[in-house]
Design a binder for these strands. Structure first.
Length: 139
RNA sequence: CCAGUCGGCCGGGCGACCGCGGCAUUUUAUGUCGAGGAAAGUCCGGGCUCCAUGGAGAGACGGUGGCGGCUAACGGCCGCCGAGGGCGACCUCAGGGAAAGUGCCACAGAAAACAAACCGCCGGGUUUUUUCCCGGUCAGGGUGAAAAGGUGCGGUAAGAGCGCACCGCGCCGCUGGCAACAGCGGUGGCAGGGCAAACCCCACCGGGAGCAAGACCGAAUAGGGAUGGCGCGUGCCGCAAGGCGCAGGGUUCUCCGCCCGAGGGUUUCGACCCGUGACCAUCCGGGUUGGUUGCUAGAGGCCGGGUGCGAGCCCGGUCCCAGAUGAAUGGUCGCCACGUUCCUGCGCAGGCAGGGGCCAUACAAAACCCGGCUUACAGGCCGACUGGAUUU
């Protein structure tokens, strides 16, 4: 079932938009601190008030409080993979929306089913995209 | 077959889809490589880098501590010796010095160290006896982790290395060994407790900091320096320091506000020199975010041969085997293997067969690189050896 769908997904020509771009600068992470946020069991997503680039970027924060290196790596990689799956599913609604989103991992991200994680990411991203643009109109 | 000791190794496999980071290219798509035995703890030892340093030595501080070897080096490893433990294979040991000095040795006990007599034993004195006093004694009792070597015989008033034999210990000699040390012989009646992971003494070793080392490039903003531009006029108050104005300069076009001053020397009266000031221009140096480099071919892996008891060493062949930096090496599945557990059937039993379950798979992820040590680890494999049982 799932395998069939993914095969179909591959048949579509992959747009460069699917490529996951990550935030790497400390300043960009700090910029998202005060912005709107959306929480789910697996993570908290923050949106920077202003995007630093004209692209959609994601930053991943996994604190040492969550566990040792092995567990932290697993959490970060699952979240990255889930974001990529989500981007594929929501590509239409997200096209051309520059945003900086920071994902703050929580403990449950290691054990939650992958589909739940991916679906929550989609909800969070779309919600924050709407909220951010409204704030932009007001300001 | 049971119980055990030691050593070595593995620590999921195959496939599908979607991805990530290096490096190559025929430059955007393909190829290729991409975590561990501990990558961990950061406890030692090296390489490398910068800093310090005239040479050498001493002191201080820190480390090491049987002997010999291996190694780039080590606190590591190998072999051997000694002591202790185990029936044994084997295991454990900071294993130099206690007649250089200082210190400590709780409780108990008479006494814990220029020794010491509580009970007891023996002798003498006293007393009718009990008792008391003096002396001898450490064999016995009692205390303790530890009490002036142990056992036996002699000896004695009772005893005691007081004498003797054996064992132990010290010293001397010989033999074996590179040595630690061992063996043998002689000799001494016995030296006078333990703790040196207490200070200490002796021998040996050590300059410090670390890849966030170090090198290079270098934004905005602020600050530093140099040169040039422009300015340094005047009134009132005040002894003075200074204050208040006017004019001028600067501050985005204007206004407000704010900031600015210090003159002196030479003169052919054109100016020049020195000083000073907010500001402007140009340049220079430092420097944060960031980027590049250091950055992976090495005391390297594998195979074969030689050599050594061994750690290892030598020779030949062959291979290139992670280089990330908010940090790649993954995510989601399928099948299999292994594990575990439940049910059913068979069997006296060890167990065997079939089926189902486990969000089923330990400990843990490079961060400059090596050699070690230590610690963590589901489960499994192999080899050598020891003790016992059974069978022939």
């Amino acid at each position: 079932m799932t395998a069939d769908e993914t095969i179909k997904g591959k048949a579509d020509t992959p747009s460069p938009f699917f490529r996951l771009e990550t935030i790497k600068k400390r300043a960009d992470f700090k910029a998202a601190n005060g912005g709107p946020r959306f929480s789910t069991p697996g993570f908290t997503m923050l949106r920077a008030p202003a995007a630093a680039t004209d692209r959609l970027r994601f930053g991943f924060t996994v604190t040492k409080k969550l566990g040792k290196a092995v567990l932290r790596n697993r959490i970060r990689r699952r979240l990255k993979a889930a974001v990529q799956a989500m981007l594929k599913a929501e590509s239409a609604s997200l096209a051309g929306q520059p945003m900086d989103l920071v994902i703050l991992a929580r403990q449950a991200a290691a054990d939650l089913p992958f589909e739940t994680l991916s679906r929550d990411l989609g909800r969070a991203t779309l919600t924050l995209a709407k909220r951010g643009s409204e704030a932009g109109k007001r300001g």
